[in-house]
Computed example of a mutant assay.
Amino acid sequence: MPIAVYALAAGAFGIGVTEFVIMGLLLQVSTDLGVSISAAGLLVSGYALGVFVGAPVLTIATRRLPRKTVLMALMAIFTIGNIACAVAPSYGALMAARVVTALAHGTFFGVGSVVAAGLVAPERRASAIALMFTGLTVATLLGVPFGAWLGFDHGWRATFWAVAAIGVLAFAALALIVPRDAARRDTVPLAEELAVLRRPQVLLGLLMTVLGFGGVFAVFSYIQPILVTITGFSEAAVSPILLVFGVGLILGNLVGGKLADWRLMPALFGTLAALAVVLVAATFVLHDRVAAVVAVGLLGAAAFATVAPLQLRVLEAAGGAGQTLASSLNIAAFNLGNALGAWLGGAVIDHGPGLGAVTWVAAAMPAVALVAALGSRALERRGAGRREVVAVAGD
């Protein structure tokens, strides 16, 4: 695999830490800033909505710039945003800083996915995308538990200072390793790129992404209070348990990439179904410490096994002209799912049936995503059938 893909993974690592680390800091942030756990959980939603807005806006705004320049500028925004998080004097200021940080996220992964896929042979595109996203999974394996420990011992602000330092290092890696490219003077007209939003298969792919990751984040956003309140772990024990989640993410991400390179649609069906099953099963084991830790690892594996199939499905449905925009929109869709999931989990906690029901309520979202995937396949087959009929009639 080209070394430039690993530089992209370094950027993904930094972004992954700042996105996910807040889940391990909810109790500290809520106590320090005097807000409820569900309000602290909305910091997940705020970040995700920032990604949702920033991804299409920045992708369109930077569409004619060299991709390397875009990636470096986004990493600079990311670093400045994390510094703002570290010094935020209030809940509102922290929310605003999280949103600013999030603006870089969607376009970075969207542009980075296109760059990674373009660096390898066509039959290795899903694996290249998965490798870039491995930075995100390593962030969850190492960065998030370390950030949770750092926040527990030295305060949550120290975690954001550490993440800002990661941003500086990732910026350097991008500057030194990613190949320089020219300004994109041959960029297709904007109307042609936006036309991708009229394609039913693209819209179905985006819907699958929203629903799949909505289920993940309905649970993961509240993983700390779930493990402390229901399973009975101490706050200090959450950090090493997140390591288990991270191991699952890495394994699931790599397996999902291999499966998508092999056969995309079966991989999509299988990973979404596995995610729904894991969420349902988790409901029945949360009171047992060993089983709960196993469930956390399986959730990580099932969640990120869906990433490469979902991303590649949208890229293929978009075709050449709209791939960069569609790629960024799918990252936005991941984060819209994150926002909806965090909101749904908070609603279940605040308005019933309560924290213990979050997992089984969350399972409904990937189950609906699976239905959308089946509908997408049926639509695809009908389209192929019509083309065959037209071809026969033409003969």
Rank of each mutant, 00 (worst) to 15 (best):
G212P: 03
W161Y: 15
V244C: 05
V247F: 14
S234L: 11
A195P: 01
V202W: 04
A165H: 08
I223W: 06
V210S: 04
L207F: 10
L176K: 13
L227E: 08
G252A: 10
A170G: 08
I226L: 15
T229S: 15
A175N: 11
R199C: 06
E235L: 14
L197W: 02
L190N: 08
A183C: 10
P240M: 09
V216F: 14
Q224H: 09
G246T: 04
T231R: 05
I166S: 03
P189H: 06
L242V: 11
A236P: 04
G205N: 07
A218R: 00
G252C: 08
D186L: 03
A195M: 05
F220Q: 09
S234G: 13
G155P: 12
L204G: 09
Y222F: 13
I223F: 06
R199D: 09
T209R: 00
W161P: 02
I166F: 11
A236M: 11
V228E: 06
V219W: 00
A195H: 10
L169Y: 08
G151W: 02
P240N: 06
G151S: 07
W156Q: 00
L243A: 15
G205W: 02
G214Q: 03
V228Y: 02
R198V: 09
S239D: 08
A218S: 13
V247C: 14
L251Q: 07
G232M: 10
L243S: 13
A165G: 13
V178I: 14
T229R: 15
L227A: 09
L194N: 07
I177W: 05
E192K: 14
G246H: 02
A175Q: 12
L251P: 03
R157Q: 12
F160Y: 12
R180T: 12
E193N: 11
A183F: 06
E235D: 13
L197C: 04
P200W: 10
E235F: 07
A172V: 15
I230E: 08
R180F: 12
L206K: 02
F160L: 00
V210A: 06
R180M: 10
P189Q: 08
Q224V: 14
G151M: 04
I230D: 00
F245Q: 03
F213D: 01
A175S: 14
D153K: 14
A183P: 10
L194E: 07
P225Y: 01
P189E: 02
V163I: 15
A165I: 12
P200G: 07
A191R: 15
G248A: 09
L190I: 14
V202P: 01
F217E: 01
A164G: 06
H154K: 13
R198F: 09
G151Y: 00
A164V: 01
I177P: 04
W161H: 12
